[in-house]
Design a protein around this nucleic acid. Structure first.
Lengths: 236, 236, 236, 236
DNA sequence: TATGAATGAGTGTTCATTCAT
DNA sequence: AATGAATGAACACTCATTCAT
């Protein structure tokens, strides 16, 4: 039985290795410039071997995209408290983003794969999406947070949650993808985090109900972490 | 010398004709699906002849991008009044956008070419841009308007004008490009205008100085035109 | 030694199982669309294991072809009476064909494998055949029947028995293979039998001695079985 | 204007040259073993250049098939007399076949291309044919001749003209293709002609009305040419 | 005995660019 | 000035076969 397990482990490891190589290349050259040959060379395998682990280039890319997206979403959902206000949830969401992005290039991968696979996706309509990407759940999550915020009187009721979700995703996607297209050494993770944080902050303010105290809307940053336990007023 | 001039004129005319054909195709099929062959056929020229007028496909596309951008920028600058406030200027800017987008596909061209040519551009830094695109002046113009707004106390002084300019351009670019990827008949110009207007509005609100009366920030829409002459208080 | 025998038996059984799977696939998809992978999957074995039992795909296919051919030939030879006239033998031969084809897909296998393996074979010369296929014995049998018929005055002495044998085999082969290329459900065994019967009938008539009573040459059909026992006039 | 004509001529010449190379390879290796690369190499061109002259491999092969088929059919129809009996027409048909086949490998090409492109074609049903090959007209022509023969009392009325047409084409196709698959030096044009002549002869006899004088049915051979002018009794 | 893993050599097709004329 | 012709390099994907374990 040890053998079977070891085989399993090796297979997983190989898949992971291939995905790692593909990710490197995506980060280096941009998704649309990565060919199956490139990945094979980097992984020191033959093209044919790649196809042993992934049935097609698209599915390899989808796996890469989903793996990171799943990690993010699970992390976020695990840290969710019942009874959080919309703005608290948003802050938590953002904290998860900072945590994940601070550690790795995962977010870059998520968004650039996403653009590659479903280019026009979230901006226009959900229905046009051809491929089942986990990242689509980002859309739902964000939409829900905005809707809850409207219900709680935090956000302007004239605002369309779906449109805001689209916008936020587009912004991140663009930010991240643009970064991914730069040569790797020019890339500055820290910068991306600051930039996307500012963007998100602006949008949150832009959709806030008129007259709301802005102090409530401050998102966590790399310097100021958000601790949901402390903030969520379970007693009140 | 008349001959030289005529030659010059003919050459310009030819170039314009090629660009016209290329633009048609970009709108019909999306930038990345337009081949040199396609353009040559549409222009009823040989591929080799195209290379007589444009040194490469990329440079042809850049010219197309620039030509439209120049039209927009000149139109905007021509309609500028001295003495306009930042927010008035922004409204005018937006009115120009509405005018241009309502009338023609020029904006689609501008942004989709731009994405095609310098995908990672404006988000990160001006210096990294490999190619001299006129569209970069959009960036300066927007930046200036935001900076002026900060100076006039309309916008939050903590805001970074350059970052806002990047953001706005990214959003438009994404919106327009996503649209451009749809088949031409499915494209809905009206929808793009509404969407980008909403986005712009949210950002303007998001960067407004705390406590500012939001009514001042209302952008023109397709229904409510902005008339700078009436609004600009030259006397005050 | 029981062990050795059991091993032998198991090996044979495994081979048979693989051949069964391959045959199913050939019937379903046509010989040239069956890959080693397909067969391995169907047999629930690894590709490598297949190569333990058959040294190559070609040789597996040859075995399949031969096994079915042997079955047919043995059946035919078992039912042969000494003292049958040529035309009686031919009728018997045809009856065997009808029996075998009516009951199973064996004939389809025989001929489609044959075409796959030795496409140019029987038409031109026996010597050119690269691979030792049992089906070549069909050729000898038919040739013998024709030669006997000539000797008995049933067939035109100007006729070349070898050529007729080639022709008949080619016709069957083509008929069967064409059928095999159709999707399995569209295949119409009944139709093939009728068609090949007609063809065979025409050839038999075509080579009959001038002036011979055609009634003697009527082949059995699906409706009219041939009973050699009754017909063979052992007394005369 | 001379230039245009020369270009035209050169283009035609190039096409012809490519077709020549492809034909050589088909004769040498069999149609299904000829790749675009092979043809390009033989023609001392790049693969891309081939695609300048033929839009796809299939269409190149179809052109090859059709060009020869058209030559044959036109030759036959040009030599047709009004008022010929069925059997006279058949003899003429055969004479055309002998003429064409004696001179070149054209018939080999016709039939092996045909098999490659529409493998199961004539045997089963006309409707299944996916590609418009001129060779299908062979089918109609033969069918008509048989039908006329039945009407004139030459052939057995029980015979199905369509089935005979299928058979004849299958036989030629098989004969020719089998030849084509042999190594080129083993091929013997003379032999094919004799063989197919004999086959055709046998079928004609096989479908003759019972009691008909066989002498009327003798087909032309390489040795005995058929001269339709002499035979067609225009006066009677 | 059995197999998972690996691969070399191939498939048809596309496209931006060059160059002799 | 204009072009027809040519091409190298690339693309995603497949398959029969081998071999270490």
């Amino acid at each position: 039985m040890g053998i079977i397990e070891r085989r399993e482990r090796e297979k997983t490891e190989r898949k992971a290795q291939i995905m790692r190589c593909a990710k490197e290349l995506i980060l280096e050259k941009g998704a649309e410039n990565v060919s199956v040959m490139d990945i094979a060379k980097r992984a020191e395998l033959s093209k044919a071997t790649l196809y042993l682990y992934f049935p097609s280039k698209d599915l390899l890319f989808m796996d890469i995209c989903n793996a990171a997206a799943v990690r993010f979403i699970e992390n976020f959902r695990n840290r969710l408290y019942p009874g959080l206000t919309a703005i608290e949830t948003i802050k938590l969401y953002w904290q998860c983003y900072l945590d994940m992005f601070g550690e790795s290039d995962e977010m870059v991968i998520v968004f650039s794969m996403w653009q590659y696979l479903s280019p026009g996706y979230p901006f226009l309509s959900l229905e046009d999406a051809a491929k089942p990407l986990t990242i689509f759940e980002f859309y739902t999550d964000i939409q829900n947070m905005i809707a809850q915020g409207i219900a709680e009187g935090t956000f302007d009721p004239a605002v369309d949650p779906a449109m805001i979700a689209r916008t936020i995703l587009s912004l991140f996607s663009t930010a991240v993808e643009n970064t991914a297209k730069l040569p790797k050494d020019a890339r500055n993770v820290r910068f991306i985090i600051d930039e996307t944080t500012n963007l998100f902050q602006i949008i949150i303010r832009g959709i806030a109900r008129d007259g709301l105290d802005r102090a409530l809307l401050n998102l966590p940053t790399l310097l100021e972490k958000y601790e949901p336990k402390a903030l969520s007023s379970k007693t009140g």
